[in-house]
């Protein structure tokens, strides 16, 4: 098991450096430079001021030099300073990370809490009315863009019914009231969870149907185990693996989706910071966010691999088998 984790960790580190190279190259290839944005905001800036800023940002150096300079600083824990605000990028991202994590984790939890029971019930009674309705619900969830669902929620829940606030995170920034936070969180979290919900529900249903048709389930039935016991203790444990694997795979989509949802609901997270930074070609912030997302995805996938091997002994056996054959 330890060797398995180390191997996955080694691959993750290599992938991480590959991501930094690709991200830096792609960011630098975007049409327009930070100076174009600065000049667009301040058309009266003199050529000398523009040249001084270009030098200050290191944009006058070749791309490869810029990359290694950034990498060296990053390895020393310095992600640089924002071109827009002159703030430390690490601090800037950390300040925004909490709201984004809260939003994405909540939406993931909502999606799983609803999708897993619905998927199980649909699988237990396949081709029933409930199955058709829940499948239709899953397809709608999958195909409806989050921002559109969000706008519908704003219109219905905020504007027509006036039950919940339509945007923001707290009513008063210096009064962090939990109930107030929940009130502000519900609409963006549900908007973001919709697509995940449909996705996980379909996965759960198909995985459960497959498991329920297997021999060990028939054996359990023959032994006279109760239906609930068969479903929860035997079928669910064997069906949950695809869901766990896909939680890791969904992290980048979740963060991608949060960019739009955060803008729509004025949620003060990384997504909004990302869009502003793209507009301004704020390379240090863009790279900083990319690093955070890459690390989140790599750690997420690593954790998923570990959890999968714990939940499903077969994966552990393959890993140990590989170790033995390696000897």
């Amino acid at each position: 098991m330890g060797r398995y984790i180390l191997k996955r960790l080694g691959i993750s580190i290599i992938v991480f450096f590959g991501i930094t190279i690709l991200a830096y190259a792609i960011t630098s290839m975007m049409p327009g430079t930070p100076m174009d944005f600065v000049v667009a905001s301040n058309p009266n800036m003199s050529a000398e001021q523009i040249a001084a800023l270009t030098e200050q940002y290191g944009l006058d150096k070749p791309l490869i030099v810029q990359y290694f300079s950034w990498l060296w600083q990053m390895l020393h824990g310095n992600l640089g300073y924002s071109y827009q605000t002159s703030q430390d990028v690490f601090q800037l991202i950390v300040a925004k990370l909490g709201p984004t994590l809260l939003l994405t984790v909540t939406s993931m939890v909502i999606a799983l809490i609803i999708a897993i029971p619905l998927g199980i019930l649909a699988a237990v009674k396949p081709k029933s009315g409930f199955d058709y309705i829940s499948s239709a619900f899953a397809f709608i969830g999958n195909s409806l863009p989050g921002f559109f669902f969000g706008m519908i929620l704003i219109l219905l829940v905020s504007v027509k019914l006036n039950w919940l606030p339509m945007s923001g995170m707290y009513t008063m920034p210096d009064n962090h009231n939990f109930a107030d936070l929940i009130r502000h969180l519900i609409l963006p979290a549900f908007s973001l969870s919709l697509q995940q919900l449909g996705y996980f529900m379909r996965y759960m249903r198909s995985s459960m149907i497959e498991t329920l048709g297997q021999d060990f389930i028939r054996t359990a039935k023959a032994k006279g185990l109760s239906r609930n016991s068969i479903i929860i203790k035997h079928a669910l444990r064997n069906s949950i693996n695809p869901i766990i694997v896909n939680i890791g795979a969904q992290i980048p989509f979740l963060i991608g989706g949060s960019v739009v949802i955060e803008s729509l609901f004025s949620w003060p997270g990384i997504g909004k910071l990302l869009t502003t930074s793209i507009d301004a070609r704020d390379y240090p912030v863009l790279m900083g966010i990319t690093i955070f997302i890459a690390v989140a995805v790599l750690i997420g996938n690593l954790l998923v691999d570990i959890v999968c091997s714990l939940v499903d002994p077969r994966i552990r056996c393959v890993s140990e088998g590989g170790k033995k054959s390696g000897k």
Partner: peptide, 8 residues
């Protein structure tokens, strides 16, 4: 008085 960065 106070702020939530990027929001209010």
């Amino acid at each position: 008085q106070s702020k939530t960065d990027g929001e209010r």
